[in-house]
Design a protein around this nucleic acid. Sequence first.
DNA 1: TTGTAGGCGTTATCAG
DNA 2: CTGATAACGCCTACAA
Lengths: 339, 339
Amino acid sequence: MHDLPDPPGGARMRDVARAAGVSAMTVSRALREPSRVSPEVRARVEAAVREVGYVPNRLAGSLSSRRSDVVGLVVPSLENSLFAATVKGISDVLRREGFQLMIADSLYSPEAEEAAIRAFLEQRVAGLILHDTLHTEATVRMIRRAGVPVVENGTVPAEPLDMVVSYSNREAAKAMTRHLARLGYRRVALVTLPSAANARSRDRRDGFLEALAELGRPQDPRLMLEMPSGLVSGAEALARLMEGAEPPDAIFFAGDVLAAGAVLECQRRGWAVPGKVAIAAFDNVDLLAQLNPPVTTLRLPRHEIGTRSARMLLDRLAGRQSGPAVLDLGFEIIQRAST
Amino acid sequence: MHDLPDPPGGARMRDVARAAGVSAMTVSRALREPSRVSPEVRARVEAAVREVGYVPNRLAGSLSSRRSDVVGLVVPSLENSLFAATVKGISDVLRREGFQLMIADSLYSPEAEEAAIRAFLEQRVAGLILHDTLHTEATVRMIRRAGVPVVENGTVPAEPLDMVVSYSNREAAKAMTRHLARLGYRRVALVTLPSAANARSRDRRDGFLEALAELGRPQDPRLMLEMPSGLVSGAEALARLMEGAEPPDAIFFAGDVLAAGAVLECQRRGWAVPGKVAIAAFDNVDLLAQLNPPVTTLRLPRHEIGTRSARMLLDRLAGRQSGPAVLDLGFEIIQRAST
DNA sequence: TTGTAGGCGTTATCAG
DNA sequence: CTGATAACGCCTACAA
C-alpha cells in the first residue's frame, strides 16, 4: 500500500468542471453517457478533459456506483504456456468489453488460491475465473457471501461453485486410450502429472482406467506412472517404463510436455517411434507437430475456454444470463505418425 | 462496469464495529496496526471480523488513504512463455509483499499499450512495469503527469522513462556473434523477429552488425532474414538461407523458438548439426537443451528481471530508493553441441 | 438538459 | 488507547 501521487498532478472531476464551466455531475455524464448531454457541453467537457489531463478515478467511481470493471483470475501456474492460451482468450474478450484483469497463481495450493481470492474480493472484483476447481471451505464461504459470479475452468467439478467452462479430462483420456487400442496397441501405459493436488490429473487417470475396463483389459500398475512436469521428466518416464520386464507398446503421456521429452529421448536412443514404442500426448502444443515423428495428441480448446469463460461471466454481469451453466467444449484426437 | 453485490452479503466496517462494541476507527486500526490497539480489543475485533465474515473494501480504503497495492504490468504478449518467466518473477515478489497484479498485453502496439496504461492509471495503480520501451507521446505525458513509478524491462532504452531492469539485447547478440566467429564459423547468418515494432529485435540486429564490423567482416544482406515467431518459421528460415548460392556455415536465430524449428528441420533433412550448418539460439528455453543436438544459446535472466523489477518498484514506493536507476543483469553464453 | 444534496466505505486528523 | 469528524472523488437520486 503506497502513496498515490494524485494531488500534485492529478486533476479531479471538479477541475474539469471548472475548466468547462459546468458542474461536476455534468462532466460525469458527459464522460459516461455522452448522449445525455448537449453536444455543445459535451465538446467543452472533452476539451477541458484534454486541457487538464484528466484521468478518471475508478476507485471513487466504483465505490460510489457499486460497480467494478475488474475481473480476477487465478491460474495454477503463470509459467505454464497451456494456461497462457486460456489467459489470452480471457484477456481478449475483457479488453474488448472494457474490463481489466487481475491475475494470481495458486501454485496448485487451495490455501494460496484462498489468499488470492480474498485479495480479489477486497478489491471488489466484478467476477472471478478460477482454473482450479478444488477450493478450501473458507474460499467457498467467501465467494458465496460475496455473491460474485464465478467461472471454473479446470475440469467439470462434481459440485460447481457456479458456472463452468471446460472440457472433460476424463472423457479426453478415455478417448485417447480407446484410440490407441483401436490402432492395435496391446499394452498401453499411462504417465500423468502428480495427482495429489491436481484434479485434472486424477480425471485423466480415471478416464484411462475406464477405457481399460470397457476394453476388458486388466489394470497393470507397472504401466502407470506419475511424473513431475517437464521434458527431462518425460525422458525418464520413458526409460523407466521400457526397462520393465513386459514393456508397453504404447505410452500415453497425459500431461504437459512429457511426450515431447520422451520422443526426444527415443531419438537419442535410436528407438523407432512407433516401431519400438508408440507415443501419444495430451495437448496440442506446436512442438508436437514439429517433432520427428510428429506426435499424436488431443486438441483441447484452451483459447476458447478463455473466451467463453469471459463471455459467460460478462453475460451474467450484464444480466443476460440467469443461473449456473456448464459448458463442455469437447476435444479432438489428432492422429499423427507417432502412433 | 457491473453491479457489486455488496449490500446483501457484504458486511462493512461499522458492522464489525458494532459486533465488537467499538468504533469503526478502532476496527480499522486493529486491522492495519494491531499493535496500536489493546490486546483485548484486538481479540474482540478479530472475533467480530470472523463472525460477520468481513472482507475489507480496498476501493474505499485506497480512495481514502490515497494508497494502492496494485501494480500494473504490460507485456507484449500473454502467450509467449519467455515473458511468462518474467511475469512469474514479478508475481512472486508482489505476493510476498501483499501487492496485487493487473496485467494487460500490448500486442506490440504502442497504442494498445497506451490504452492499457490509461486503464491502469484510472485504477490508480501504485506503479507500472512495462516490457516494451517504445511508448506514444500521450503515454509518456500520462505517466509523467500521474507521477507513478515505472520500471521498463525490454531493453535498455535511450531515454528511460524512469527505472530500467533488463539485459542488453545488443550486447547479447554481439557476444553470440563473436562466439560463433571464435569457433571458426566464417559465414554467420542472422535471423530476427520482425523489427518494425520490436525494439529488442532491432537491438539484436545492431549487436550482430557491430560484431561483424569489429571482426572486419562485411555485411551480407543474403545472410540476414526477418521471420515471424514460431517453430515452422524457423524451419522455413533455415531452408531459405541454405538454398542460397553461398549458404552460411552458422545461423544465429535471435528470437524465440526459431532455432528449435530449424534443428527439427535439419533432422528431417538429415543435415548434420553443426556439420552441415551450426545453429545458435537466443534464449535458454528448456527445449533447446533437450533437442538433438542440444542447442548453443544465451541464458537470459528472465525470472530475475521480474523479481528485480518488482523489488525496485516496491523500494521506490517505500521511499527506500530515490532516483531513476538502470540495472543491467547481463547474460551468459551456453555452448552446446549445435555449434 | 443541468445542477444540488447526500452517501459509497474507509482513513487522516485531532481531541479526549 | 479510543473515538468523533471530515474528507477521498465520484455517482445515485431527485429537483429545477
